[in-house]
């Protein structure tokens, strides 16, 4: 982990961002699949995977919300220098970053409109652990079923029930990420 804002970004952005995006794309296309990413070192408590997602997807055009715990001066400075995303509250955010509980209430975020369901937040949820076990996932992108160590199911079931509206999630832990779009049906085992 780094504590200074000036370092820890991509050293070869076009190539590193391309690799990171491919992981993010495959994660979103195949919910629950785990992917390793690298190339970023950000101040604690930001994980490598979350930092890579920010560098790959966010910039001055993407309002970002930092949940309590991640809203530290060190993280803010790093994002200001490396990403340039404007900081906003939950309801205006295009991306929101934090631990699952810290991101609550989860219905405070944009879920899109009937005409523009894409105008919805993407949550980057920092996890203590991220494994392909636990909650059963089915839906588009999953041939039979997948499993992911989700923090709960109720919120994800409510979110899927609003389809085509809803938010979409990335889960990050160290250098690993997985995704859960609004289309995925979740079932606690």
């Amino acid at each position: 982990m780094r504590d200074d804002a000036l370092s820890g970004g991509f050293t070869d952005a076009p190539v590193e961002a391309a690799r990171a995006f491919r992981a993010a794309l495959e994660a979103m296309a195949c919910p629950g699949s785990l992917h390793e990413v690298a190339g970023a070192e950000a101040p604690a408590p930001l994980s490598t995977a979350a930092a890579v997602l920010l560098l790959t997807l966010c910039d001055g055009e993407t309002p970002l919300y930092l949940a309590p715990g991640h809203d530290t001066q060190g993280v803010r400075d790093w994002i200001a220098f490396q990403v340039g995303a404007p900081m906003v509250g939950p309801s205006e955010a295009m991306f929101a970053l934090g631990r699952w509980d810290a991101l609550a209430p989860h219905d405070a975020y944009a879920i899109g409109t009937a005409e523009y369901p894409d105008r919805s937040v993407t949550l980057i949820v920092e996890m203590e652990e991220l494994r392909a076990e636990g909650v059963r996932l089915t839906g588009p992108g999953i041939e039979t079923e997948a499993h992911l160590s989700l923090p709960e199911t109720a919120a994800f079931q409510r979110n899927a029930g609003r389809f085509p509206l809803g938010w979409d999630c990335y889960f990050t832990c160290e250098g690993r990420l997985a995704a859960l779009p609004r289309t995925t049906r979740t079932e606690a085992l």
């Binding site: 952005a13 076009p14 961002a17 391309a18 995006f21 993010a24 794309l25 979103m28 296309a29 790959t56 997807l57 966010c58 910039d59 055009e61 993407t62 295009m94 369901p117 894409d118 919805s120 993407t122 588009p140 992108g141 389809f163 085509p164 979409d168 779009p181 609004r182 289309t183």
Partner: peptide
């Protein structure tokens, strides 16, 4: 350029989330 790619990449992810 990287900014353009990020804009397209964000659209691609939402497209996958709303097939």
């Amino acid at each position: 350029d990287e900014q353009t790619k990020r804009m397209i990449r964000r659209a691609l992810l939402k497209a996958l989330a709303i097939p």
